[in-house]
Every structure is written in C-alpha cells, then in structure tokens.
Simulated assay, not measured.
Amino acid sequence: MALLRDWGPALEKWTTKVVPRVDKDQGDPAARRVRAAAKAADWATVRAELEARPESEDRTGLLWAVGDVAGVERWIVEVLEAEPESPLPRLVAGIRYLSWGWEARTSAFAKDVSREQFELFHSRLASAEKWLYEVAEREPGWISPWYALQVTGRGLQVEPDVARRRFEATVRRAPHHLGAHQQRLQHLCAKWSGSHEQMHAFARESAFGAPAGTLLGQLVATAHLEHWLALNPEEDFGYMRSPAVRASLREAADHSLRHPDFVRGPGWIQVYNTFAMAFSLADEDRSAQECFRALGGRVTEFPWYYLNGADPAKAFRQLRSSSA
C-alpha cells in the first residue's frame, strides 16, 4: 500500500510545551476538507476529495471523516437515486450507516445498552452491509468495502470464519493495511470473541511478518494496552512494567517507528500516540518522551480514552508530564 508524503519534518520543531489538542483528522488536510464538504451536503467536493485519494493510498481515513458527519444519511439518498450505477455513493452510504449504527449503540458496555438501541444498531449495520457488498461486487479491487465489512461484522457478531475471510479479503488487496489489522486484533480480543493468547500471537505475527518500517508495529503496543485494560487494578500496572512487556514494546518500536524506513504518512500520528501511552504506562520514560516530542501536541482519541474514559488531551498531558 503506497504512502503519501512524509509529514514529519514540519512537526519535529514542536516541543512538549505545546498544548495537547485532539486531531480527529490526524494531520490530513484532505480529511478536514472532506468533512467540511459533507457537513455542507456538497457531494461534488466530497466526490472530488475521495477520487483524489486512490484506494492504493488508503482512502478509508477520508471515508471515515465523511461517515462521522451527522446528516450524511439524509442527503446521500438523493445521490444514490441520481447515480444508481455509481459505486462511490454506495460506499459513502455504507460507511455512514456503519458509523450511524455505532452511534446508536454508543460505547457503553453491552449490559448498559437497551434492546431498542441494539435493534437500531443492527438495523443500520445491516443496511451498511447491503451497500458495502454491492460496492465489493462492482469494484473487486477496492479495499475500503472489505475493511468496513470487518467493522460491521464485529457489530453483528458474524461467525468466526466469516470474520476471518473478511480480514483476508482486505489484506489480499492491501497486505499491510493498518486498519484491517486493527479490526482483526479487536475481534481476537478477549472482550469480543478471542483470548489474550490469540491477540498477542496475531499482533506479533503481523508486526514482525511485515517489512521493517511499516505501521503494523502498533499492533504489539495495542495488544499490551488491551491486556492491561482487561486486568484488575491490582495487576494492570505490574503487567505493563514487567520486563517481558517492556522488552516487547522496545522491539516493536525498533521494527516500526524507530526504523529508518518508517514514513510519517497517513496513520503515523495514531501509531506514535499508541506507543507514547504504552511506553508511559511501562515506565519506559525515555522512549515515551521520544514519542511525545515527535507528536508535539497532536492527540488521537485512541488509545487515550482507555484511561478511565478521561478526556484524551488531558490523559495525554498527564502522562507526558509524568514521563518527563
């Protein structure tokens, strides 16, 4: 999967004095433009921005920016009627209904989600799947519909074989697609349908089975954070600070963001945020500060909301200070 230009040098001058701010678009100006166009129901601009980002350069980030905008579900219907043979409006509709479905469910634990919420959640995901499968049939080389089908599948709790085939369909088209691997890792978490052992094995196999310098090293850090999150308060920090976990994080960083071949293209900001949090919790202060310096004040919502539901920017600031 091709990467865009290196965005790092302009950010290196930032220091840890910069006030942290959540950047929903991860430094991608195209995401900001397409989000604004979606809010204005400006399909011509949305289409132009999406078509300017080919599938080979992973336009899923732009699609998510559109899908997160309230109201897209209304105006996209008119576009579908006007362009019945075009796959792109169907892709946008599928992504919007996917995001809209998760909005109905909320991020609450399943026990706290009402029956009505679950029914609406499943209904919207079913609509999303219909459109996504139509796109996959019309454009068999596209990555985005298969990646999105991984997300709908997790929400609809499809059979394990189905979930695995959707992941495989995505990585056949883009072997090192970070989002696809992130979704597969979530599916293998103990909190969904897997186990710590499955999750860690997948993370390591994916990260170290890929060439050095890819984004996939993040999977190792994410797996440790997921394991930490599942433990009791009496155990969690002991786990993160264990010699094995600390060595694992250093090894993954060396193979990924610390490697000379690592390119700061789409997704790099979240990778650095994930390692910053993991290194901080592991008491690897020097490594954590390397990540914080590279980020300046750029904060991604994931994984910082794992800290007791705290505001991501606040959690970022607190761990940045504690590791200084």
Rank of each mutant, 00 (worst) to 15 (best):
L3T: 09
G8M: 08
A10P: 14
A10C: 12
W14L: 15
T15F: 03
K17H: 07
V18A: 10
V19R: 14
R21C: 02
R21W: 12
K24N: 04
R32F: 01
A37S: 06
A37I: 07
A44F: 08
T45Q: 14
R47A: 10
A48V: 04
E49L: 09
P54G: 05
S56A: 14
S56N: 12
T60G: 13
G61D: 12
G61H: 13
L63C: 03
A65C: 05
A70T: 15
V72T: 04
V77E: 15
V79N: 00
E81I: 12
P84V: 00
S86C: 03
S86K: 07
P87N: 00
L88M: 08
A93F: 00
I95Y: 06
L98N: 00
G101H: 04
A104P: 07
A108R: 14
D112S: 07
S114A: 01
R115C: 08
E116D: 12
F118T: 08
F121P: 00
A126I: 02
E129I: 07
R138T: 05
P140H: 05
W142R: 03
A148M: 04
T152C: 09
G155E: 06
L156G: 08
V158Q: 11
D161E: 15
R165Q: 14
R166D: 01
E168V: 07
T170V: 03
R172L: 07
R173L: 11
A174D: 13
H176Y: 13
L178N: 04
Q183T: 06
Q186D: 11
K191N: 11
H200M: 15
F202W: 13
E205V: 12
E205G: 12
A210Y: 02
G213D: 05
L216C: 00
Q218P: 02
Q218E: 13
V220Y: 04
T222F: 06
T222A: 03
A223E: 05
H224V: 01
W228P: 03
L229E: 14
A230S: 10
N232G: 05
P233F: 11
E234N: 04
G238C: 09
Y239R: 03
R241M: 09
P243T: 05
A244F: 01
V245S: 08
R246A: 12
S256C: 14
F262V: 10
R264W: 06
R264I: 03
P266H: 11
Q270G: 05
V271P: 06
Y272T: 05
M277D: 04
L281H: 07
A282D: 11
A288Y: 14
Q289P: 01
E290S: 14
E290V: 15
F292D: 09
G297I: 05
R298F: 09
W304A: 10
Y305V: 15
G309C: 00
A310W: 15
P312L: 02
K314Q: 15
A315G: 08
F316P: 00
R317S: 08
R320I: 04
